[in-house]
């Protein structure tokens, strides 16, 4: 995974001082914000159709490429590029659902999962084919600079600050949509009981589409911000963050929106700590260790309640 190196690299000094600890927390939270945004999409889609959407990591990758072209070819700034990437990914997400997943609504679980893996590989390798496998350098559109924190030798960069602000705005917006709009109510109803929701006159197909759109838009935003943060993107960049974000969603309790956000943040911080204090080579392994630990001790995740299966 070439991108794994790009994904880190910064601040890998070893030490035990408070400064470095705080610095790792900040780095972890920036990374965690990215995971959180991706994890939200996973958790929403799983909540509504019980599908692990493997292609979600690739939507994030496409988001980064849309952002890249919006900036380089169209000469747009950060915010317009972010919005265009979000819209593009929302459309892509809905299209994937309509073309690949919808025909399989009544199929076995494994059939849908295999389709999801297929879509994921398809997006990776069509991108490799058309846009070349080599990484591209993401243009610098935010000025470099950093703030000093609490007089410590720990810093928060402009990029990191942007990531925090955008993530928080998006999460607040998402919570508003889910809890205070009619669409949001319908989404929760479909997630709770699809058949009952259909009987109540909710157009489940539309709600599923909207869920994919919202989840994909969040992943698209994450893609652009990663481009800005790590300044390089490539067609396979979605694999690892995608998997880790899924683990983050499981950690928080799959299907639970605040859970995905918290899980993403925790994942980010743990990873920053492992690469900061331990061996950065094992950074990717940590995510899966966490998954196994959750499965042993609390399969429903931090926020999860044991669910009732209809028999």
């Amino acid at each position: 995974m070439k991108n794994a190196l790009l994904f880190y690299g910064v601040y890998n000094r070893k030490g035990v001082s408070m400064d470095i600890f705080i610095q790792q927390v900040i780095n972890g939270l920036s990374l965690g914000s990215i995971y959180a945004l991706i994890a939200l999409g996973y958790t929403m889609v799983y909540g509504i159709i019980k599908l692990i959407n493997f292609a979600h990591g690739e939507i994030y990758m496409i988001g980064a490429y849309i952002g890249f072209f919006a900036i380089t070819s169209m000469g747009l700034g950060f915010i317009p590029a972010l919005i265009i990437a979000m819209i593009g990914c929302a459309i892509l997400g809905m299209a994937i659902e309509k073309i690949a997943y919808k025909p399989l609504r009544k199929s076995t679980r494994i059939a849908v999962l295999i389709t999801a893996i297929g879509v994921s590989l398809f997006l990776q390798y069509t991108t490799v084919f058309f846009l070349r496998p080599e990484p591209r350098i993401f243009p610098k559109i935010l000025t470099d600079g950093r703030f000093n924190i609490f007089g410590l030798k720990a810093y928060i960069t402009y990029q990191q600050l942007t990531i925090f602000i955008v993530t928080i705005l998006l999460v607040v917006l998402l919570q508003y949509i889910v809890h205070f709009t009619k669409t949001g109510k319908a989404m929760r109803a479909v997630a709770f009981d699809k058949d009952a929701a259909t009987l109540m006159g909710i157009n489940t197909n539309n709600i599923i589409s909207i869920t994919f759109a919202i989840g994909s838009a969040l992943a698209g935003a994450a893609g652009v911000m990663v481009g800005v943060y790590y300044s390089a993107i490539n067609p396979l960049m979605g694999i690892m963050p995608g998997l880790k974000a899924f683990v983050a969603a499981v950690l928080g309790g799959i299907g639970i929106i605040p859970g995905a956000f918290t899980g993403g943040m925790i994942m980010g911080v743990i990873e920053a700590m492992v690469s900061g204090y331990g061996n950065s080579l094992y950074r990717d392994a940590v995510a899966f260790l966490i998954l196994i630990i959750i499965l042993i001790f609390k399969p429903t995740g931090l926020f999860g309640k044991s669910e009732r299966e209809k028999v």
Partner: peptide, 30 residues
Amino acid sequence: PIFRSGRLGGDYLAIATLGFGEIVRIIFVN
């Protein structure tokens, strides 16, 4: 650990095995 945790575990098998493949690779690299 995956199969012990019931139906949920089955859903996660895909992710866990994918991760396992990657861990094996990392271990042998190191």
